[in-house]
Design a protein around this nucleic acid. Structure first.
Lengths: 198, 198
DNA sequence: TTGTTTACAGACACTCTGTTCAATAACCGA
DNA sequence: TCGGTTATTGAACAGAGTGTCTGTAAACAA
């Protein structure tokens, strides 16, 4: 007996209703009753499962991030050698499957805490990786690893957000990754088609 | 007669109280009474000036962004030739003077709308600039200008956020800008101290 | 089928909201 | 300094939403 079918039904309905409504009206504008009504569930039932609407939101996003983390493990493991595009590619694919939720999270909906924490965690991990890699290979980073890490993840999050917000995705995920790799490799002047200044 | 001294006092006090309290407890947790109490102003007075707390927040941030835009004009005007670091430098300086408010905005506090809109506006303008520049000089962008624009502003916002969130700024603004310019010029492999893969 | 668990509807006190009002105080210009 | 104007104040108000707690009905697992 893993879980009562009724509780699964209720929880799923509430989660789905939340996602729908946040996209329609934004998180703060929502009422618990709005959610239960959309989910076709009694208000009392809501409180049997969640403390309040931020609790529901937190669980929904936590589930998503847990799922993402899991899918990211193999991608990150193989990228210790350099800038493969594997992690970001995996994120784009994940986002394609759960576009609505990704939109919500990346908009910073619901006070934006889950997003911020995820970004900060990524940045810290990336900075640490940069430092370790430099140490291991006895090279001197030419700019602050902390700064470089922020640039790195800031770029990816920005691209991800832009990508999921498009109604008709202008570029397939694989194409985006290719461009990002080219960009990392050749730099911004190359990408824009210009020669760097003397 | 520009403005009654009393209204100025009240408005300023309420704005300052909001900023303090958002930093302490976060926007959503705040009550109008919390704000008026901290500002030492009657609750009725609050409603004489603002529709609700999001209205107050919107005005405070709008003022900040207006101020920023004004300071950005000369910096942007001179940067039509390439990637000078002037705009981001001006933002860092501005942020240094108004660190608290910058923190709040960059955290996406208050549903994050002002930040998102600012970012989107910057991205659109940047993409347009890329396109126009390529057209003017008859060069072919090697990656989607839209994507490049997102990378560009996403990076700057991320760095800005990281910078204002530090308690003891590890790097002076001018140093940060220098690093960003180097990064744009030489690419990420150079910055991390590695040679790019064959 | 049976005992257990969940969903349900309604009621409850509570907090916060946004508005109104008359009395008081501060302001500005003359 | 004065007098008219305008803002602030505290209090009261209805209304919306919250979170909790009932007893009853329904769905569940075994």
């Amino acid at each position: 007996m893993a879980e009562d079918r009724r509780t699964r039904r209720s929880r799923r309905a509430l989660g789905a209703a939340l996602v729908e409504l946040v996209l329609e009206r934004g998180f703060t504008a929502l009422t618990v009753e709005d959610i239960t009504e959309r989910a076709d569930v009694a208000r009392a039932t809501f409180y049997a499962h969640f403390r309040d609407k931020e609790d529901l939101f937190a669980r929904v996003t936590a589930d998503l991030l847990a799922e993402l983390s899991e899918r990211l493990v193999p991608a990150v493991a193989g990228s210790a050698v350099g800038f493969t595009g594997k992690p970001i590619l995996e994120m784009l694919r994940h986002a394609r499957e759960d576009r609505d939720l990704y939109r919500i999270v990346l908009r910073g909906e619901g006070d934006g805490k889950p997003l911020q924490m995820f970004v900060d965690a990524c940045a810290r991990a990336t900075a640490e990786e940069f430092r370790a890699r430099a140490e291991r290979n006895a090279v001197q980073p030419r700019i602050d690893p902390e700064l470089l890490a922020r640039v790195w993840v800031g770029e990816q999050i920005a691209v991800l957000r832009w990508w999921v917000e498009q109604e008709t995705p202008s570029l397939p995920a694989e194409e985006v990754v290719r461009m990002l790799l080219d960009l990392a490799l050749h730099g911004r002047y190359w990408a824009s088609g210009f020669e760097p200044p003397a």
